[in-house]
Each structure stands twice: as C-alpha cells, then as structure tokens.
Design a protein around this nucleic acid. Structure first.
Length: 498
RNA sequence: GGGCCAUUAGCUCAAUUGGCAGAGCAACGGACUCUUAAUCCGGAGGUUGAAGGUUCGACUCCUUCAUGGCCCA
C-alpha cells in the first residue's frame, strides 16, 4: 500500500490545472447538468441498427458519465464515458464543436465526469457512438485513475478505496448488484409468504440469541453498559408472543471475534420466525428459497463455487448430527460417545480442550473438524445435542437432542434453524445451565434473560425459526472466495496518513 | 495468538551473485479526423512500506515495527 500519494506530483499537476481552468471561468463542480438517459437504454434501443437506419434517428441524447479512456487524433478524439449502466463511445470533433470548445475538451482528464449532448452514429468498425454536439464539465477529478488495462489489483487498495474499485472493476460492481438483488429476492420471497419485516434493537442490554462474544458500548445519559447485538433472535420471538406470527429481519449482527475469509466483525443476517410450523417445514422452505435465488440469479440450480460443482436442486441430503459423525466423520459411537475418547480425538486434531467443555461441545468440535469441510453439496444436519442448543425445542422421542438443523454448502454453515423452545420452565433451566458454563469460563455462553422467560410465560405459539448468513450466501452466488469481496467496506485497520 | 508470503513511479509489474532502480499504461510537450490496451517523436516522474544494523557498496542480507494476503489456533 503506497502512502506517499501526498507527495505525488500527478495530483499536484491536476490541482494546478484545475485552478487554472477555474481562473478562466470554468466551473469545476457545477450542479446544473441534468442527464436524460442511461447509456444502457441507448445501447439496448439502437445498438442493433445499421448505419443507414441510425442516420435516420435524429434524436439528440443528453447523457453524462465519467471519462474512462481517451484516444486523440489532433482535431478529433474518441473517448469512452461510463455511467451507472454501462459505457459508450463518444466522438469529439473540432469541426463540430468549434475551435475553442474543442480546445477545452483537450484539457479534460480521464476520470472527469462530463455531460454530453449529441446524435448517434456508427463508426467504421461498427461501434455505436455519440457524435458530440456540445458537452460540459460536470465534475473535475483531481486524482488519476488506475491503469486502464489492469485496473486496481492490490486487494488492500481495493478494500480501502472501494470507490476506485467500483469505478474500474466491473466484477466488483457486479458482485454488489447481485448482493442487492439477493436481498430484494429474499424480501419478495418472504413477503409473498405473509411475513412481516421488522426492526429490533441493535443495542441490547443482554446480548442473546447466539453463542458469541459481543462488542460492548456505553450509554452516557443512562449510565449503563450496552452490547451490540450478536443476534436478533430473542426479540423476534417476543414478537411471536405479541401475535405477529410470521416475522423476519435482515440486518447487521456484531461479533467480537477474529477476522478471516469467512468472518467480518459486522455481518448481515436474515432471521425469520413462523408460528405453527416446525423445523421440517423450514427444510422445505430453505430448499425452495435457495433454488429460487439460484434460478433467478444464475439461471440454474447447478452452480460453481471455487471449482466445486454444487447442485442446489431439491431435495438435498439429510443426515442426523450423530449419523454425520459416523458416516462422514468416520467415527464410531464408542469414540464420540465417550468423554475421554472424544477429548483425546479433539486434541489429536490440534484443538484445545477446556475443562468445562461438555461432551456435546466436544462432539461439535469433532463435527467442525471432520464433517463440516466435507459437506460440499448441500446437507441438512439435524438433531443437535440439547446442551449446545439452548433455545431449541427438544425432540419428542429423545429429549437429549433438539429439533434443529444446520445447512452446509461448500463446507460452510449457511443456515441454522430449529423448532422453537416455548416452554418457559425448560427455557429457564437452559439459561441457568448457560450461566453455569459462563461462570466456569465459557465466554460465549448465554446470559440469563429473565424478560425473555417472562415473555414465554405469556405463551409463545409453537414456532420454527431460521437464520441465514447473507454474506456467505452472496459469496456462494458470486463465487467469491472471501467475505471481504461481498462487503462494500470491510473492516480494516486504519492506514497511515498520506 | 502462531507460521509463511507480499509491500519498488499514480496504476500494473521488472531489476542476475549484494554492484548505475527500469518498462508499459497514466501524466507532461509535440504530430495526427474512424480509434478502441490508437500510433509516432520527446522530456520528466523514486525517501524501493518505516526505523535501525551488517557492508567499500543494500530493492536485495539481518533485527524490530506497520499494513495486507493465505494457512493454522
């Protein structure tokens, strides 16, 4: 990362040039130009016309864009300008513009934003082009853009100066368009099923709904500690108590943990809850949701992620948690079912084991190490141990497991869902277990949430709920190897002053 | 937290064994009315991420630090 830009004479050159233009009466940052059409609309309508047909089009188009390339020939110049919708070639001629105006054009730089007015024609090579009748400077650019052919490659620079990345790298623009499209489709999908979008607190007195370390903050006027939420779950379920039967929230969660290609401290989560449903209903809904997205965005349910062919065509594989330890993890019940043996295995695999960790916790570690990376095709893993699922409903036949599943695709957790625990007496006991774990040193254990228990005492209808990590979903559908590729402004340490 | 790697002109990249820091694009001056990574001519542009050290001599070797990437915890 270069930090000597402050000394760059290229920038100084541009500042000087701009000052000179201003002295001559040219406005560098006017706001009176109004574009009338997007480049894409021009191209869609006229690009297929022949030269002769185009000549009959006498329309004058008024458009604006950033100058991305200039090819100059003395008294005539080709350039490309880019707006939000695409690029188009524009042709400036001294003959058309007059000597003074053409001279003014020659002073412009790549990166400047201009407004142009002109008619369409086709060049000898067949490219649809605007023959500029008039133009004006709309915004002066005082910094040079990266090289036209290679663009901006340095990943650090791409994240720090995302604005430049978006100007010069079409692929970056596309990823964020897809992200927005996914969010829109998810909302449409849920709205159509009668869900109601809600907003619940991001600042919470008791951070709940997940096992994770929270960020702490402080409210001055109230004189109290607050936490940034790690999940919206407990508030969304309070809304089920309140009678909103089907709710969802798409918003940021914050977890005070390490940063990796899979983790950003703030990330976007979809959580949705529906009354009168169980986790099997969510399996159906999840398959429908993912395949709907795939068809809309990629046109197929067979997708490629980082060289893996992944088939999202329902129905997907289903395995119980313990089956997966056996069939995929290659363990026997006597291995994962015995505390000492499980502990040894985890240690052999290079993970630390803390004294307070329960057998169920060790089993999830074994799962993370031996099973999860192998779940490339979509897999629902269900019936997680009750101990590691403090908010999930117990299975009717076997109370030591819960009616919960996680969805894995490409070796990653994509969703977590369960039939909701709505017995306040059991919920209270589970919180108490968590509090005990916390006292033993498990920082990620849940806090006691008395108000949540009180809410359940009023009666929460039987329900099922699910959380889907949006960033990972976008990674999957844009074939992105790192979460930073799908977050506009990923968290970075501050750079040195220029 | 640990390991490995990277950091050279605005951008993309070179620099042999430790021996004169270069190129393309961009920018600057000039020629040029159908180019599209335009072409041609000319000149310029550097605290080699930072601070130390070794050496006659450091982009290159050593130490520390910063930022980032990948892997592991």
């Amino acid at each position: 990362m270069s930090t000597n830009e402050g000394r760059s004479n290229l920038i100084k050159q541009r500042y000087d040039k701009a000052a000179l233009m201003e002295k001559e009466g040219i406005k560098l940052f006017p706001n009176n130009f109004r574009k009338q059409i997007d480049i894409k609309d021009i191209k869609e309508k006229y690009a297929d016309l022949s030269s002769e047909e185009l000549e009959k089009v006498q329309d004058v188009f008024v458009l604006a864009g950033r100058i991305m390339a200039i090819r100059s020939f003395g008294k005539a110049t080709f350039a490309h300008i880019q707006d939000r919708s695409g690029k188009i070639q524009v042709f400036f001629q001294q003959k058309e513009l007059g000597k003074d105006k053409y001279k003014f054009f020659k002073k412009l730089d790549i990166g400047d934003i201009i407004g142009v007015k002109g008619k369409l024609f086709k060049t000898k090579t067949g490219e649809i082009t605007i023959n500029v009748m008039d133009f004006e400077l709309v915004t002066k650019s005082l910094r040079p853009l990266p090289e036209k052919f290679h663009g901006l490659k340095d990943v650090e620079a791409r994240y720090r100066k995302r604005y430049v990345d978006l100007i010069v790298n079409p692929k970056a623009r596309e990823i964020f368009r897809v992200r927005t499209r996914i969010l829109k489709l998810l909302r449409e999908f849920l709205d159509k099923k009668g869900f109601m979008e809600v907003e619940t607190p991001m600042m919470q007195v008791i951070p709940g709904g997940a096992t994770a370390r929270p960020f702490e903050t402080y409210h001055n006027a109230l004189g109290m500690k607050l936490y940034l939420r790690i999940a919206p779950e407990l508030y969304l379920k309070r809304l089920l108590v309140g009678g909103f039967e089907k709710v969802y929230e798409i918003n940021r969660n914050f977890r005070n943990e390490g940063i990796s290609t899979q983790h950003n401290p703030e990330f976007t989560m979809l959580e949705f809850y529906m009354a009168y449903a169980d986790y099997n209903d969510l399996i159906e809904m999840t398959q429908e949701m993912f395949s709907t997205l795939a068809k809309d965005i990629l046109g197929t349910t067979k997708i490629t992620y980082q060289d893996n062919e992944i088939d999202l065509t329902p129905p997907w594989n289903k395995l119980s948690f313990y089956e997966s330890l056996e069939k995929i993890g290659g363990l026997s019940a006597s291995q994962y079912g015995d505390y000492e043996k499980a502990k040894e295995l985890v240690k052999e695999l290079g993970e630390n084991v803390k004294d307070y960790e329960t057998l169920a916790k060790l089993q999830t570690k074994l799962f993370d190490l031996l099973v999860e990376p192998k779940l490339i095709q979509p897999h629902f893993i269900y019936h997680y141990p009750t101990e590691v699922s403090p908010l999930s409903r117990r299975n009717e036949e076997n109370p030591s497991i819960t009616d919960r599943f996680e969805l894995f695709i490409a070796g990653r957790e994509m969703a977590n869902a369960f039939s909701e625990l709505n017995d306040p007496r059991d919920q209270k006991k589970r919180f108490e277990e968590q509090v005990k774990e916390k006292a033993q040193g498990e920082e990620e254990a849940h806090f006691m949430d008395e108000d949540y228990v009180r809410a359940l005492e009023y009666g929460m209808p039987p329900a099922a709920g699910e959380g889907i990590g949006i960033d990972r979903l976008v990674m999957l559908f844009t074939d992105s190897p790192s979460i930073r590729e799908v977050i506009l402004f990923p968290l970075l340490k501050p750079e040195k002053k220029e």
